[in-house]
C-alpha cells in the first residue's frame, strides 16, 4: 500500500548486510566537551531500534552523525554499505533520498500548508504528474490519519498533528530508513499513543528500518525491537526491552527505573553547597 513507487535502485542493490547502520569506534567532541568515546553501534535492517539515554548525552547528535549532518572526529559510520563521512555532497544527498527523518518539532515548512509540505520532496525530486502527486500525498496523509487536514497551515496544527504530518512527509519518498528524534516528547497521552502505534505500523507495513531516539522508557519499550542506552559518551546497555529491564548495570537500572540519583547524578557538578551559600557573593 505504501511502497508502490519505491525507486528501482532498491531492487538492484547489492546483497544487503544484516545491519543498515554500522558505527565503529566513534569519537566525537563539541568544543572541549566529549560527546562520544569509542562507541560501536549496529542498527539491524528491518528492526525498530531505540537510542535511549539521559538528556544531554548526545542522542540527537548521534542521529546527526548517522545522517551526515555532522562528521565524526574518529571512527566510521556506514549507512546502507556507504561510509557516510567519505561521501561527496551529491552522494550524501542521494543517500538521504532513501532516509526520512522526523525532527523533534516536526520542522514543517511554515509557509506551506499540510498538503504542500508532504508534496515538497516529491516536487523537488520527481517529475511525477500533479494528479499522481495528489494521490501519493493523500495516501500518506491518510496513513497518519490527517487526510482531512490537508489544507491547514502548520500554525493551525497541534504538536501531535504536526509530528504526524512530518511523518507523512518523511514517508513521501518511500525511504528504506525512518529516523525519529524524540517523537513522543511533550505529547498528550492520546497523541503519544497514536505516534507509538504509527512508528511500529510504518516499520512493519513498509518493511523499513527505524531508529527512534527517546527517553520515554515505557513508550519505547512498547515499540522497539532493540535498544541502546547511551550515557557519558559510552553504550551503557544494549538489548531487547526485556533484556534491558533485567540488565544489572547501575546506569541502565537507574534509567529504566527512573531513579533521581545514581551514577547519573541529580546535581550538576558544582562547588560545595554550604560553602557556596556562605560566600558573600552567593555564587
Amino acid at each position: 500500500m505504501f511502497g508502490f513507487h519505491r525507486k528501482a535502485s532498491h531492487a538492484q542493490a547489492a546483497p544487503e548486510s544484516e545491519n543498515i547502520v554500522e558505527i565503529r569506534g566513534l569519537w566525537y567532541s563539541r568544543g572541549s566537551k566529549r560527546i562520544f568515546e569509542d562507541v560501536d553501534i549496529d542498527i539491524r535492517r528491518g528492526d525498530v531500534t531505540a537510542i535511549m539515554g539521559p538528556s544531554g548525552t548526545g542522542k540527537t547528535t548521534l542521529l546527526r552523525l548517522i545522517t551526515g549532518q555532522l562528521v565524526p572526529d574518529r571512527g566510521t559510520i556506514v549507512v546502507d554499505g556507504k561510509d557516510i563521512s567519505r561521501l561527496s555532497r551529491r552522494q550524501l544527498y542521494e543517500l538521504r533520498k532513501d532516509m526520512g527523518m522526523l525532527f523533534q518539532n516536526g520542522a514543517l515548512l511554515t509557509d506551506l500548508n499540510v498538503f504542500e509540505n508532504v508534496a515538497f520532496p516529491l516536487r523537488e525530486h520527481t517529475d511525477l504528474p500533479e494528479r499522481l502527486i495528489r494521490h501519493i500525498v493523500l495516501i500518506k496523509l491518510h496513513a497518519v490519519g490527517l487526510r482531512g487536514a490537508w489544507s491547514l497551515m502548520p500554525a493551525e496544527l497541534s504538536g501531535g498533528m504536526a509530528r504526524r504530518v512530518a511523518l507523512a512527509r518523511a514517508m513521501a519518498m518511500d525511504p528504506s530508513m525512518l529516523i525519529y528524534d524524540e517523537p513522543f516528547g511533550g505529547l498528550d497521552p492520546i497523541s503519544m499513543g497514536v505516534i507509538v502505534r504509527l512508528v511500529r505500523r510504518m516499520n512493519d507495513a513498509l518493511g523499513i528500518s527505524s531508529i527512534v531516539v527517546s527517553h520515554d522508557v515505557d513508550e519505547i519499550s512498547a515499540v522497539a525491537d532493540r535498544s541502546y542506552l547511551i550515557s557519558d559518551g559510552h553504550v551503557a546497555g544494549y538489548g531487547t526491552p526485556t533484556e534491558l529491564e533485567q540488565n544489572r548495570n547501575d546506569v541502565v537500572r537507574q534509567f529504566m527505573t527512573g531513579m533521581a540519583d545514581g551514577p547519573v547524578p541529580f546535581h550538576y557538578p558544582g562547588p560545595d553547597y554550604s560553602e557556596q551559600l556562605l560566600t558573600r557573593a552567593g555564587r
Binding site: 549532518q69 526520512g100 527523518m101 525532527f103 518539532n105 520542522a107 511554515t110 515538497f120 520532496p121 525530486h125
Partner: peptide, 12 residues
Amino acid sequence: TDQLSGMEMMAV
C-alpha cells in the same frame, strides 16, 4: 526551527 536541517534531510 530546523526547517533548513529538514530540507537537507530531504536531500534539498
